[in-house]
Structure formats: structure tokens, C-alpha cells
Design a protein around this nucleic acid. Sequence first.
DNA 1: ACCTAAATCAATG
DNA 2: CATTGATTTAGGT
Length: 457
Amino acid sequence: MLTVVYCVGVLDSSMFFGLHSCDGKKFKGSIKLAWKTVQKLITLFSNSMEPKLINTRGEENINPSKQTLSNGYTNQDGMTHALASHSINTVANGYPSNTNSMIHFNYNLYATANQSGSNYSKPTTALIEQSGNSSLGSTSVTVSPVSSDSCSSGRNSSSPDSFVSASPGQSVDRAYSSSMNGGQDLTLHEFEIVQEKIKREGTYGITKPPYSYISLISMAMKQSPKGQLSLSGIYNWIMGIFPFYRDNQQRWQNSVRHSLSFNDCFVKVARPLNEPGKGCYWTLHEKCGEMFGNGGHLRRQSRFKVKERAQPKKKKITNSKQTVVPKIEIKEEEPDELSNPSLGASPVTAAEQQEDVKTMQNVTSAAAGAVSVSHDHSSWGEASNHYQSAPVISSPQIFEAAEPQTNLNDLYPLSYEYNDFSTSIHQSQNYSSNSSFYNPAGSNVNDYDGYENTIYR
DNA sequence: ACCTAAATCAATG
DNA sequence: CATTGATTTAGGT
């Protein structure tokens, strides 16, 4: 049994859903459902609030002997799976709409329907049951409507700039620390809060979320099964979760690209040679740690920097007081106990350099050990229906032989097997000490030089 | 008020 | 799509 957690994208004539096993053990990738199927799903929702088993063609399964989830959100392990509601019911501006169907997937109609109490506005979560055989034909889908009459109202015509506040209903414990949540990643915890809000209200709403782009990108990456996403995957994830970002896409997407390139916490992972598609994958630097350990997700205490640019670019000095602060260089392997920056477990022996302290405080235990990620064909944010893409297991010697990279276009030498999603989906990436994986922690951190370059400004 | 992270616009490849 | 510069905005102290 798989749970459809998200609609992660809308392309041409189909929608993509992120999948999650109900036992919480295995991630199964994403599934592409044709528009016809999606429409049938919604029709089923509209006609009945009862969970239904259907196949990938939207045909009802008459033998629903398998387990279904009553609420569509929570499975046996107690994990919360939210949403898809607004994703199914709404489509970002510019998304294709099927004008021949009774259901029009465009936002304006959604707004209209929502205001008129249409069933279209009902949040939905679908369950997909997959047989042992991974052929699409044998895949069935259970749809389980989630009642809610508190969907946010449809958008108005205001520009996004008018939405600047967080949801008033969001009472986030900003002081939440890893010591309070068993060491869970703070960003993922924040995402759980988002999920809960969506679960509660049906949609996140059109307000601008109180997260910086860096935070949003981090969330997207961390929730992805393999900790990496393509650019479009990031776009889709953000739009799927936060309706606010279905507007002004050129603006914020440019900002996302800028964030990815500018911030050392984001590193590129090469797309496998045999994999179609353009662009690379992006992942988090394995040493960036809890960037938002200060409790807020708008602004980090300090930027995560890898190393000073060898030849700092000219910086226009308009103010004599303005100086180019040397970029913080990561040095030394992380001590074992850096788990909680909020507890002040600074790895730095002394604060000779305040900047060093600030940087290192961002490094947490999550940074220790190897990052287990691999090229991900099936991330939620990806327009892909590759259920079981062959993991790309890069031989370590590839990296051992790699010269220090100085080309700005060089990719982050990450290509790790990802083999257990169960521990990582809700607990950040799965860091493994398996020696068969490339272990960047085993090398001097100064080896990082080259694959990113940022000036501190 | 100040510092600077983040956002924005945009040129370039 | 990716990088970078320039500039503005705004969070946090």
C-alpha cells in the first residue's frame, strides 16, 4: 500500500504524485497519473467521501481487500502524510487545463468553485496500492477523501507582495530544538508543521510562507527521498506545497536559481550520463548542518561558506566602512557532539574567530558521516514515473582520482547509494557510515575547495 | 542605527 | 539552466 503524498507536478496531460509506503519503510518513487485518471479520482471524491480502490486508469477496484487508511493522512507508523488537496484541486497559473473535461484544472476556476462550495475544493489524499509487480496496469489506487470545510479562500488578485505575513494560525515553536524532537532535522520538522497546517486547513493558503528561499529549497531537498532534486523538481515542490508561489514564477524562480548558485550550502550533483533531461541535481552540502537552528526560517545567523574564493572578485566599495569579509573556510572534521547548535555545543575550541564560531555552530551531527544520496529519478518533485530506477552507485575511486575542482561549473562529487528511505524521509537524509559509500567526512574538508566559490559580501 | 542575509533584477554564457 | 554582479529590501541585534 502506498500513500500518495503529493501531487508534485503537472505536465502536459498527466500529474505526478509522490508516493510513500504505508508502513513507512520503503519509498516507491513517484507515479504519473493521466489526466483522465486524475479527473476520475476527483469525480470519485465528489460523489462519495468513502475511500475507494481504483487502478491507475481510475477504474474502481471491486476487491478492496487491502488495507486502506481512513483519514488519508496517518498510517500505522503514525507518520503524517498530508495534502495533495490543493495540488489536485488547483493548478498553478499557466498549468494546462483540460477544457474538454468537466473539471478544469486552473486556479481561477478553483477559486470560483471554492467560493461556491464546490466539491472541487475538498482536500483529498489518495492512496495508491501497488502490487508486487510494478507494472502500471497492476497498480491500483485508493482514493480517500478528507473532509474539510475550512479551505482557504481562493486567491484574490493582489500581487504576492501584499502577502507578507505568516499564517496567523501557525503557532510554531521557534525554539524547537533537536533535543526536543529526538534529533530530527529542524527543517523537516518545520515541514511537518507545514503539513499539519495543510492537513488542518486543506491548503497552506495563499499567504507567503515565512520561509526564505534557502529554507524552502532545503525543505524540498530534505523531504525528497534521496536528498536531491532537479531545479524543476524544486520548483514543482514549492508550488505544490505553497500556492503563493504559483504566481510570479519568473521572479521567484530566478531567485531560487540565484540561491542555488550563490549559496555554498547548495551543491550540484551530476545527472547520470544515461539519464535524459537537462540540468543537474541539487543537494545540500553535507556539512551545512542545521542552517536554521536559530529557530527562524527567514534568515540564518550566518551564511554557510565553504572556502574563500581564491581570487576574490572585484567588489564595488561604495562605503569605506563596507569591507569584504573573508569567507569562512570549513576546517577540521566535525567533533562527534555537534548535535544541537541550540545547546551551544560548539566544536570550536576557542572563539579566536567569531566568524568561525558562527559557521561551525551551524554544523550539526547531521553533517557527520557520509551522505547517502544518489541520483534520484523518482523524487517527488520530479516529472518522472520511474519507480525503481537503478541506483547510480559511483565507484569511490572516481572521486579519489578527482582533482581538486577549480572550475566553477564543476559538480559536487556526490553520487551515493541511497538504500533506506525509511529513516530519511522524516529524519533528513540517511547518513550512513557504510564504507562502500563515498565518505566525504573521511577526507579533509579542504578538499571542498573548488566546487564552490562564494564571496562573502 | 547598523550589519548583513536575503531578495530582486538582469547580463552573460 | 547556471553563474554572477549590482542593488535593494529587510531581519535581527
